[in-house]
């Protein structure tokens, strides 16, 4: 593992994230009270990230791969400042734009235009900055006709396209993308990957999580492989993908993770 360099855009140092998972489906006061007599624990502590350290130099694209439950999304959210680390330190130099699995809109009763504005304002952009980007976003997402309709009328493809358009058009210094490239049809995928390539050529720093190993190979300068919250390996994308694919083929039992 390389040491944390001063000039890194993202520096993650020995980060642990613990979740307290509530086993109740819907935690309510009533349930808590009526369960008081039973000595069952309803909260389980779960280590989602376990001592992860890496850094991403300015202008580099870092891919993150790993099986389901490896902690990839947790890592993205922690780097974006949405989740607090339980231990360790994260330093991010630059304006971050996040495109996480759940998309941009948060209020489906509001129109696409309103959601874009609210998302931008919450992220700290000014109204003028958003207005400036707005035409570009709606054109990129190809949903001009729907921008003034409530987001509940959107198809899932339109939803993802808008989310992608917002994230890449906000002029981020650092772009964090989680599983987003699979959004939309073949035409939009092509457009999305062209846009990503353009951002890469502009020397933007990116952190990309994807199950599409081809995308990682194509876009990333470097990759890390997470497994059950631990960083297993870091290196060239080809090498990491090969190791990860081998691991997937033979399964966890047949291979000792410490070998890597």
């Amino acid at each position: 593992m390389t040491s944390l360099s001063q000039g890194a855009a993202i520096s993650v140092k020995d980060v642990h994230v613990q979740y307290r998972m509530n086993l109740q489906k819907n935690p309510t006061l009533k349930n808590t009270i009526v369960r008081l007599g039973r000595r069952e624990r309803t909260v389980r502590v779960f280590e989602a990230l376990d001592g992860v350290s890496f850094d991403v130099p300015h202008g580099k694209v870092m891919g993150v791969i790993g099986a389901n439950g490896a902690g990839k999304s947790t890592l993205m959210r922690t780097v974006a400042g949405i989740l607090a680390p339980s231990q360790g330190r994260i330093e991010v130099n630059g304006r971050v734009s996040t495109l996480l699995a759940l998309g941009v809109g948060f209020n489906s009763a509001l129109s696409g235009r309103e959601n874009v504005t609210l998302g931008g304002l919450a992220a700290g952009l000014s109204r003028a900055e958003i207005k400036e980007k707005y035409a570009e976003i709606s054109a990129f997402a190809e949903i001009e006709d729907f921008m003034d309709m409530p987001m509940r009328t959107y198809s899932s493809g339109m939803y993802s396209r808008l989310a992608f358009a917002v994230a890449v058009n906000m002029d981020p210094d650092i772009l964090i993308i989680d599983e987003a490239l699979s959004a939309g049809d073949a035409h939009f995928k092509k457009k999305a990957s062209d846009k990503m390539a353009e951002l890469v050529s502009k020397a933007r720093t990116m952190l990309v999580v994807s199950h599409a190993l081809g995308t990682i190979k194509e876009l990333c300068d470097e990759a890390i492989w997470l497994h059950k919250g631990k960083l297993i390996r870091r290196g060239e994308p080809d090498e990491i993908i090969a190791a990860y694919t081998k691991f997937l083929q033979v399964g966890e039992d047949a291979i000792t993770l410490e070998d890597f």
Binding site: G81, A84, P85, S86, R89, E91, D173
Partner: peptide
């Protein structure tokens, strides 16, 4: 939150 440098600690 602010500026271009963010530090996240527990």
């Amino acid at each position: 939150y602010n500026g271009e440098r963010h530090v996240y600690e527990p």
